[in-house]
């Protein structure tokens, strides 16, 4: 009798909503802990940009404030729900496919291994996008490597009426000149696959330079504004196409 009574009390205790919810939660957590699936995907749905770590000796890491500043700009000026830090990926990383938007910059030599050449080609044709910013000195090796990636495609100058120059802000004269190096005109080049731009390459423009913290290069505020606007355009173009 005592035993039944005890049992009755204990059942009542379990039946209280709070405990029931707690037990359910614990069991759910246990299931999750023991059966959690491996995933290469991002944990949240915040937009971010992955910086490409490449070989050849070039300074792939140059300008650590560029991407965080661009993400901040996206959050402030658009309704893109952006994170606050950059990710770093190599072309052979499995997590590469968590980031449909990758960015590369530098002043020096770029060399891809044969495996990386294949991986970059596949990544771009499957839906990925590469924004390459020539910080001054990357042009020759970048063009050489992209020819290895796409022997059948050329980097072609993007016409000024292309959506990338009008996706959020208007750039009727194409890519802006942010940082002067050689006095050459700024150029925006693209590689296209099935009608979609898969690579955007800015040359003699150095948009990324203008995205850095003001103290880094002392670019004038209007140049920094132009850089932020063009970078936002690139992101919006990719996300809406």
């Amino acid at each position: 009798m005592d035993f039944t009574q005890k049992k009755g009390i204990s059942m009542k205790f379990i039946d209280t909503p709070f405990i029931k919810l707690g037990l359910r939660g614990i069991s759910f957590l246990l299931i999750i802990l023991f059966t959690a699936l491996p995933s290469f995907a991002q944990k949240d749905d915040k937009f971010t940009i992955a910086r490409l770590k490449y070989g050849g000796g070039g300074d792939w890491y140059y300008g650590q404030t560029m991407i965080p500043n661009l993400l901040k700009g996206l959050n402030e000026r658009t309704n893109v729900d952006a994170g606050n830090k950059q990710e770093i990926v190599e072309l052979t990383d499995k997590k590469l496919y968590s980031y449909p938007f990758i960015f590369m910059t530098g002043h020096g030599n770029v060399v891809f291994t044969d495996e990386e050449v294949r991986d970059l080609r596949l990544y771009l044709m499957r839906g990925g996008f590469l924004w390459a910013n020539d910080d001054y000195g990357m042009d020759k090796s970048f063009r050489r490597e992209m020819k290895r990636v796409f022997p059948d495609k050329d980097l072609i100058e993007v016409p000024f009426d292309h959506r990338i120059y009008h996706s959020y802000y208007d750039f009727p004269n194409g890519v802006p000149k942010i940082h002067e190096h050689d006095g050459k005109p700024p150029k925006g080049y693209g590689i296209f696959h099935e009608g979609r731009m898969i690579v955007f390459y800015n040359y003699e423009s150095d948009i990324a330079d203008g995205l850095e913290d003001p103290a880094v290069h002392n670019d004038p505020p209007e140049k920094r504004e132009e850089a932020m606007r063009m970078a936002i355009n690139i992101v919006i173009y990719v996300l809406t196409n």
Binding site: D45, F47, T78, N79, V80, D81, P100, G127, E194, R196, V235, I236, V238, L239, T240, N241
Partner: peptide, 17 residues
Amino acid sequence: EGRPRWESTFINRALMR
């Protein structure tokens, strides 16, 4: 779509093509 996000990017591409 309420905001640019990868989910809508890939749906758009699938339906557009």
